[in-house]
Write a protein that binds this DNA or RNA. Sequence first.
DNA 1: TTACTTAGTGTAAAAAATACACGTTATATT
DNA 2: AATATAACGTGTATTTTTTACACTAAGTAA
Lengths: 229, 229
Amino acid sequence: MTEITPGFDFAVSIDCVLFGFDGSELKILLIERNEEPFKDWWALPGNLVNKDESVDQSAQRILKELTGLSDIYMEQYYAFGEVDRHPQGRVISVAYYAMLRLGGEKPLKPLSSYAKKAQWINVADLPKLAFDHQHILNKGLEKIKRRIKHLPLAFELLPEKFTLTQVQSVYELILGKKLDKRNFRKKILSFKVLKELEEKQRGVSFRAATLYKFDKRKYNKLFGKEISF
Amino acid sequence: MTEITPGFDFAVSIDCVLFGFDGSELKILLIERNEEPFKDWWALPGNLVNKDESVDQSAQRILKELTGLSDIYMEQYYAFGEVDRHPQGRVISVAYYAMLRLGGEKPLKPLSSYAKKAQWINVADLPKLAFDHQHILNKGLEKIKRRIKHLPLAFELLPEKFTLTQVQSVYELILGKKLDKRNFRKKILSFKVLKELEEKQRGVSFRAATLYKFDKRKYNKLFGKEISF
DNA sequence: TTACTTAGTGTAAAAAATACACGTTATATT
DNA sequence: AATATAACGTGTATTTTTTACACTAAGTAA
């Protein structure tokens, strides 16, 4: 691979927009930067693509280096290419998003000194972000909004066992509006991708709700179908 | 803008996937390349992004240089970043699509020697394409398929005055399936974005159909609404 | 036992989607 | 002028989906 053409003077970066749901709040994964520019600022996990990796591979690597998370399926959604978006040169950023359930399980530990720390931050309570990351995040939010209207993708955000009220909360948080309880349940159950468990919620004050599991086999068959909320 | 960080050794390119409809066939705009690599091959109109232009601006410039077309609204849909997608180095390509009505009006004239010629080619009858352009095109097709299911975007493909049968043809060509005539008309008219004209089709054998115009004001109000076919 | 809080359920009305067939009309041909 | 042709244009009944709406049941905590 030789470079005979001029024009090989861009950098390409990845930014990851990870949405997380902990059972009640919608959060986003941010790092605190340890490098200039924007040292000490909060930012989306992101870094430069290496010469010998595809952008998809790069996204996986960078996420792992900055947050310790691996094997997260992320989907590319936009390339940001304004001339002045990076103060140190011409950097095109390819953005990816994913949706995750949050539990105590996953330790967030940056493996690279590039980030001081990684942390889940409530979407409703964001700090100022480095670069054009607020813009990248906004586009990501729009994306998942459109997304969950058509596919019950929000299951990625839920714990393995969940209540119908939790499912509804996720939808309400992402869509930013209240939904009717009875109609929501009717619809979500009509997809036939939830298995009702014998089990009930534990450790809650007041009446415990029935737990459900997500049936992946049936879910995959849904792919491509049109669904709207 | 100084480059103190290493890693500024990528090129970024644009590829444009323009769909065109001439009243009966779905076409795509290709160029015949006049440069290595892939000299003399058919390819999507595409070239490298310059240092001083955003990717959106670049898409406009490149399309104009290679085909003579200007002021075409194109939407970005994906960044292709496989390591070996370009034989001469690491090139990330940002792909854009647009949908156009075709008439005699627009002359296709490459302004740059990079392309020998530009030509609308029937989608059903494509030559082998340079680079990974077949792949880029396929993704573009998937995109507009999903797209027209939700917004009556296909009007971009139609002439200023068109018949309902033509609208239906566009949908059938893109979706790749037959639709019911009466139901299609009911639905498309229910959006209230078509104005029926006094005028009829001219120059056809057999009965002439009523012509319609597209009401842009009303169309813009539709944006964001969910529509499916 | 009482007070509190969330879980869980049904129905009627309206709107949207689907399936389906034939008379009409402009043109071309003889 | 008559006829054949080919696309135009239209309606209804049925099914499915969406929407609006309010109370009882069950479990916990005081």
